[in-house]
Design a protein around this nucleic acid. Structure first.
Lengths: 122, 122
DNA sequence: TTCACCAACATAGTTAACCTAGTTGGCTTG
DNA sequence: CAAGCCAACTAGGTTAACTATGTTGGTGAA
């Protein structure tokens, strides 16, 4: 599949999947083919497929659920239309605040559970 | 460097570099340390550093020149006006990460305070 | 029936290795 | 001296292997 145009394979696959998503060929809520299937379909290695899916994941077009699959997100929640410019700053501030608070809780929890071995092996 | 907070190393490095760029510590036009230097500084493998740089590259914060280095782009010129796609992607990734981390913390708290650390095996 | 276990499959993260290709600076050779 | 070669850097792309972890369905025992 991945044609030999200077464009890297993982970008070609990401482009193709993105086009399918935005073109409606892959509807929201539906899972992408598995990594192995995509690798087979595009005649690429698992690594490049994982890189391509990682890009879409980073773009928010798609959300991966470990053990289940990678699902197309709803177009509305994935791409808020209109002027979100004003909300961006507030969102960023909120996220920053949450990050700091969560990090503190995590550290507290880590130090308090380090003595007693809770939930380590399987 | 990359602390064991559950957040993947390549995201931690990307976050750190992004913060340095947006904080002015890495001025536009200046090159990032080389891949090898970053790997050494963050005590990470070359692969995760390359993934981290790839994210910033994808976000348009940085541009790589083969054979020379990876350079910080000018924050104003780098992005066509109105293209907050990268901002949104970044925010979404952060929120997703926060959700996962919070869920883990919540479960740790639940299992350590109510039950014995057996953690419902399924 | 119900529970526990297990095998198969899924995403996710990490590492190492190899290759291509551009850049730079020094050294050799004409 | 000047041209060209070459070694040592750089980023970028690809692959393979391994680990961790979550999901699901089947199987067998209580």
């Amino acid at each position: 599949m991945v044609r030999n145009t200077g464009r890297p394979g993982y970008l070609q696959i990401a482009d193709d999947l993105r086009a399918q998503i935005q073109g409606g060929s892959l509807a929201p809520g539906t899972p992408l083919p598995s990594t192995a299937q995509l690798a087979d379909r595009y005649d690429a290695s698992l690594s490049v497929v994982k890189m391509a899916v990682g890009i879409l994941r980073n773009e928010g077009l798609v959300i991966g659920q470990q053990g289940k699959g990678v699902f197309v997100r709803d177009a509305d929640e994935e791409r808020p239309a209109g002027d979100e410019q004003a909300d961006l700053a507030e969102l960023r501030a909120t996220v920053r605040d949450l990050s700091v608070r969560l990090a503190k809780v995590e550290e507290q929890l880590a130090t308090s559970t380090s003595r007693r071995p809770g939930r380590s092996s399987r």
